[in-house]
Amino acid sequence: MYRQAKTGKLLIEILPNKCDFCGCCVGVCPEDAIELKEAEIYIIDERCTNCSKCIWSCPIEVIKFNKEGVLSKSLA
């Protein structure tokens, strides 16, 4: 019910200062929409469908649904 067009409003937010960079969210993302480097993570909004699987799989609750929409760092 939250799904929107891939270029539409991104509603999922990774709280960067709280992330442990463990990769659970990357592993479950069906859209390959999460970029994870050594200690840097962001959602690629051209790919994200707001499906929320990353939120459910985050062991430490640092991915949040934000119905106001969030700004994302996107593909260059």
Binding site: G23, G27, D32, P59
Partner: peptide, 26 residues
């Protein structure tokens, strides 16, 4: 490249894990 593997999918293999099968650990 581990649980967060993306290399396989770039090569065209279906690699993401169903979230129900991901054991999320702390």
């Amino acid at each position: 490249d581990g649980v967060e593997s993306r290399v396989g999918r770039w090569a065209g293999l279906r690699t993401f894990t169903d979230f129900r099968e991901m054991e999320c650990c702390v």
